[in-house]
């Protein structure tokens, strides 16, 4: 069997480059690429078609949840293992729902990372034990219909979620237009739609929403 081809996405370069060394010490793995934000992860995943993407959640420009959603959609064979500090059931549910099949906390040992990559590559799911417990409890709440309306996934499009993060990070319409290769007018339209759909009335409200939903860090 060939090597497991891995793409590492994390904005902490020291960790990313160190993990590459750890994985490459094991002949079963080949690190085919690295990305320091979600947009780069999506681009590199599409170009390199890795077997597994190891995905951080909190990243600038595009967070790991959105990147997971886009990669899961365009590359159904690529498995996504989330590697994060967030011991948060809401966030775990959201990113598993977006298409990740593993959720590993950064408090794991390096051997556990290797086991988790192998597991998602095989087609299994892998959850850190403390997260598994929370996700099951959360799932049971879902099953019993005890979900508060506010926490229901919003009906924003992928583009709108992308722009939502960029607005919350403080980029202007002009800067966003340049980043996404679209016109400023289009950005303005998206911005208005986001505000309307989420019933928000100022950028401050939008930032608070983005922090609450884990789209950016507070």
């Amino acid at each position: 069997m060939g090597k497991i081809r891995v793409l590492l996405a994390d904005d902490h370069t020291i960790l990313r480059q160190g993990l590459r060394k750890i994985l490459e010490a094991d002949p079963a793995f080949e690190v085919v690429g690295e990305a320091s934000d979600g947009r780069e992860a999506v681009k590199k995943a599409e170009a390199l078609k890795p077997d597994v993407v190891v995905m951080d959640i909190s990243m600038p420009i595009m967070n790991g949840i959105e990147a997971t959603r886009q990669i899961a959609k365009s590359l159904p064979k690529t498995k996504i293992l989330v590697l994060t500090v967030h011991e948060d059931d809401q966030m775990a549910m959201e990113i598993l729902n977006a298409g990740a099949t593993g959720y590993l906390l950064k408090d794991a040992a390096s051997e556990e990372l290797i086991a988790a990559i192998r597991a998602v590559h095989r087609g299994d799911s892998y959850l850190s034990p403390s997260i598994a417990k929370r996700v099951i409890a959360q799932y049971l709440d879902f099953a019993r219909g005890k979900v508060s309306p506010e926490e229901k996934p919003s009906d924003l499009t992928a583009r709108e979620r992308e722009i939502l993060q960029l607005i919350a990070e403080g980029y202007s319409n002009k800067e966003i237009a340049q980043m996404l290769y679209i016109s400023e007018k289009t950005v303005k339209t998206h911005r208005e739609n986001i505000m309307r759909k989420l019933d928000l009335h100022s950028v401050a409200e939008l930032v608070r929403y983005a922090i609450r939903r884990g789209i950016i860090q507070g």
């Binding site: 160190g18 993990l19 060394k21 590697l83 500090v85 950064k106 408090d107 040992a109 390096s110």
Partner: peptide
């Protein structure tokens, strides 16, 4: 560091 994976990685990198 609060996170084990960071500690493991730094050990590996530093000793390397």
């Amino acid at each position: 560091d609060a996170h084990r994976l960071w500690r493991h990685t730094l050990r590996k990198v530093l000793e390397g």
